[in-house]
């Protein structure tokens, strides 16, 4: 169970509530678990709460790694790292 979707914080309001934009859909999200979240951050939204602030550098790193993996697999046998 645990549908979570990334959204961008667009405003931080009172009472621990932020407006978060999920590709054009805006919802109110509780920030109690991510007090560090600020406007512009991407957060993981689960049932109307932000559960974590997205680590953008790690996301890029993962994608880069995946690209390298795929590229490595295209090399002839014996050349795989």
């Amino acid at each position: 169970m645990c549908l979570g979707v990334p959204g961008k914080v667009i405003t931080v309001k009172d009472d621990w509530i932020a407006e978060v934009d999920i590709s054009g859909v805006v919802i109110d999200v509780g920030l109690q678990f991510t007090p560090e979240a600020k406007v512009g951050d991407y957060v993981l939204v689960h049932t109307g709460y932000a559960m974590h602030v997205m680590d953008e550098a790690e996301a890029m790193e993962t994608l880069k790694l995946l690209e390298e993996m795929g590229a490595a697999a295209e090399l002839p046998d014996g050349q795989i790292s």
Partner: peptide, 8 residues
């Protein structure tokens, strides 16, 4: 927006 709402 439809994709976002459906994900959510």
């Amino acid at each position: 927006q439809v994709a976002g709402a459906c994900e959510m």
